[in-house]
Design a protein around this nucleic acid. Structure first.
Length: 233
DNA sequence: GTCCAGGGCCTAC
DNA sequence: GTAGGCCATGGA
């Protein structure tokens, strides 16, 4: 995937497309999501909530080592044992409960089959996932995109921060900060509606965010993205 | 010791 | 509707 293939060779008009091109050139394809199966993606999406991925890797490795990284495996595991195995990912009691809630939903609603689950229209599936305790908008979209291959742009803390600092979203009057939906709609409006594009872009935003876009350092030293505010409608 | 990470829920105003 | 507290480990 190249930016010119996506937007044509005659120059890239919108800042969002330019950001994508710059990041792809700088960091290359990110090969997300780092998981062997869609089920592993979903487990990872829950475990990575407000948690460094390195800690999630340890938890996933524990589950694999125990031979439990499957719907059947996790269902057979008492919640306390599950919590113990995922301990390195933090918030382990909360996350054990969240995983159990999802497993219950998968079994009851889709007879335990992810293939059945992903047969639902994306908007309906998103709505059902949001009903579950422990799955909010970002996790639901991560599941749709990275496990289901659906074009749902994922908005995470880095995406928000980068969009704000680089002027892609309105300098939020603190009374009306841009909502998840606003930011998602902004990106989706300016990108080809393709899962592969959303996949790569979000991964690249996280990569540059981890490197340059720190919470308490608006300097963003070394950031490859254009620093000045943009008007994006 | 302090800060932060690929959020989400709950409660109090 | 939204700000603030809570959940918790591990690396920098």
């Amino acid at each position: 995937m190249t930016a010119t293939a996506l937007w044509g060779a005659d120059g890239i008009r919108n800042p969002i497309a330019r950001f994508f091109a710059v990041l792809l050139r700088r960091y290359g394809p990110q090969h997300w999501w780092p998981a062997d199966t869609p089920f592993e993606v979903i487990v990872g999406a829950i475990l990575t909530q407000s948690t460094a991925w390195t800690n999630v890797e340890k938890a996933i490795a524990n589950l694999k080592r125990a031979g439990m990284l499957s719907a059947r495996g996790l269902e057979a595991l008492p919640e306390a044992d599950l919590a113990r195995l995922i301990r390195p990912s933090g918030y382990y009691n909360q996350k054990a409960k969240k995983l159990k809630v999802f497993l219950e939903y998968l079994r009851r609603r889709h007879r335990g089959s992810l293939a059945r689950m992903f047969r639902l229209p994306a908007s309906q599936l998103r709505g059902e996932l949001l009903e579950l305790h422990g799955i909010g908008e970002e996790t639901a979209d991560s599941i749709l995109l990275y496990a289901g291959g659906r074009p749902a742009f994922v908005v995470d803390a880095y995406t928000r921060r980068i969009a704000r600092r680089h002027g892609l979203i309105e300098a939020s009057s603190s009374r009306h900060p841009a909502s998840y939906h606003d930011i998602q709609a902004l990106f989706e409006r300016h990108l080809p509606r393709r899962a592969a594009v959303y996949n790569e872009f979000h991964a690249l935003l996280v990569e540059t965010g981890k490197r340059h876009c720190f919470r308490r350092d608006p300097q963003c030293a070394g950031c490859p993205l254009e620093p000045f505010p943009h008007r994006v409608d």
